[in-house]
Amino acid sequence: MFEPRIVAFCCHYCAYSAADLAGSMRLQYAPNIRVVEMPCSGTIDARVILAAFEDGADGVYVAGCLEGDCHFLKGNFRAKKRVHYVKKLLDDIGLGGERLEFYNLSAAMGTRFAEIANEMTERIKNLGPSPLKAKEVAGA
């Protein structure tokens, strides 16, 4: 059974706190998520997303605050645009933009955090392992 490795870049002010809340609420969600805390989703850099995929991630998502609620005003909008740009680049590369996603949520949305983790895990399971990884194995 394929268990994807998914990297979740989470904003400190919302998604990361929502993850905490999900834990406090004892919510069960897919164990495939590796959370990386960020000061703001707006600090996401295309290089970091690409590095995650190059180093073996099957999926990546970036989670920022609800629109209008960014602690730094517009960081989440910037993150969304950047993610959109990288999705297109992943299409060009041949890996497929659907392995990358952007989500908005608030610190109070522990349930939603768990939902997103499950949703993304499900999506990547359907897509199968990152073909980059398969090639690596085949090449090795």
């Binding site: 690409l50 680049l89 090639k135 085949a138 090449g139």
Partner: peptide, 17 residues
């Protein structure tokens, strides 16, 4: 760096690293 990473990934997918 983005272009270099993209080219590497693209070529790995083609089986010609």
């Amino acid at each position: 760096e983005i272009l270099a990473a993209a080219l590497r990934m693209h070529r790995r997918l083609q089986g010609k690293p």
